[in-house]
């Protein structure tokens, strides 16, 4: 497929990168592993005159461990994350999620930062320009309609990056550098819930790292991803769960349940989380899964009907809770 021309820029520092993005504002974008961006450029759903490659910035790589948290550079490859002893030991949930992204080729090119900044997806959006020319554009490509929900006033494209729900479940934060300097924020806040513009990040800023608090003792977590094929596919539905307990087999003291691919952002199910607190897992588990089921509002033509995706939400939430529970016991 045809790749439109662009100018390739390779900054050596974050400051340089931000300066380039500011200078060519509107026409520039960053590339990390390129496993998503190159496809979008070929489809001409993003059009860039300048592509700013972050791969020459050495301090965006690597994993740093501190007493109560760990920090992972945005350019760290997913393949490095899934096999890092450090991460397997202290943030297994992230390693699990990273290991089920795409296929091996995607993971050896794809980076953590790129994965977190994934755009939402839709059958009517992730298509070539030629394909899209068969019909008038939809909201997400600048038009005035939605092909998925004809009566809807907005875009319902689905967020389906795999590591974000895991990291939100772990309570991760991201470090962002922009023209105004550096800031740190909850990862959860990166996701706008707006299908058309799902990532809350201005075009001059970049994510430099992800900070993960170390889980307390008696914690367990799991990411359940359902997809048709064993590799390559994005999730039809995903559920990330992180739990902490008072003691092994004791009551739940902290719970996060994050659903993936059921809406325009990775979404926490707070009612379900609350329902677990102060209770033993086996007593609260079914109710939590049911609450997740009730809260999910998937839209059709996104890998399955709403009926089916809701069923999956329940099954996957239950399975993730069960796994997290047994991991917490195994952790003693």
């Amino acid at each position: 497929m045809y790749l439109p021309q662009f100018k390739y820029l390779k900054p050596g520092t974050v400051a340089e990168a931000v300066a380039m993005l500011s200078e060519y504002q509107g026409g520039a974008g960053v590339i990390a592993g390129g496993s998503d961006l190159i496809v979008k450029l070929k489809h001409q759903i993003v059009n860039l005159r300048y592509v700013v490659d972050l791969k020459g910035i050495s301090n965006l790589y690597g994993i740093v461990s501190r007493a109560d948290e760990m920090e992972i550079g945005a350019l760290t490859k997913l393949s490095a994350i899934e096999s890092s002893p450090e991460i397997l030991n202290k943030a297994l949930l992230l390693a699990q999620a990273a290991s089920v992204v795409g296929g091996p080729q995607h993971r050896s090119m794809g980076t953590l930062g790129g994965n977190l900044c994934l755009d939402t997806r839709c059958y009517y959006f992730n298509q070539s320009k030629r394909w899209r020319q068969s019909r008038p554009p939809c909201y997400k490509t600048g038009g005035d309609r939605c092909y998925v929900a004809a009566k809807s006033p907005m875009c319902h494209a689905v967020y389906s990056g795999d590591t974000a729900p895991a990291l939100i479940a772990l309570g991760a934060r991201v470090r962002i550098v922009g023209p105004e300097g550096e800031r740190e924020q909850e990862l959860e806040l990166l996701y706008s819930g707006n299908g058309k513009r799902p990532i809350n990040l201005d075009a001059q800023s970049i994510i430099t790292s992800v900070i993960i608090p170390i889980s307390p003792p008696y914690a367990g977590h799991a990411y359940e991803k359902y997809r048709l094929r064993e590799a390559v596919d994005f999730p039809v539905v995903g559920a990330a769960v992180a739990l902490s307990f008072e003691q092994p087999g004791g009551v739940c003291t902290r719970a996060r349940i994050v659903l993936n691919a059921v809406g325009t952002a990775p979404s926490r199910v707070e009612e379900a989380e609350k329902s677990l607190l102060g209770r033993k897992l086996e007593e609260a588990l079914e109710e939590a899964a049911e609450l997740a089921y009730q809260s999910a509002r998937p839209i059709h033509r996104m890998g399955g009907s709403p009926y089916y995706k809701k069923k999956l939400v329940k099954v996957l939430t239950r399975r993730a809770l069960e796994k997290a529970g047994s991991m917490a016991i195994g952790n003693v």
């Binding site: 296929g103 059958y123 992730n126 298509q127 070539s128 394909w131 068969s134 019909r135 048709l228 094929r229 064993e230 590799a231 390559v232 596919d233 994005f234």
Partner: peptide
């Protein structure tokens, strides 16, 4: 008349792992 899945991501040919 429009093929909705004209890519091998969306057209689900099984993988070796399947």
């Amino acid at each position: 008349g429009l093929t909705l899945n004209p890519s091998i991501l969306d057209y689900k040919m099984p993988t070796a792992l399947d």
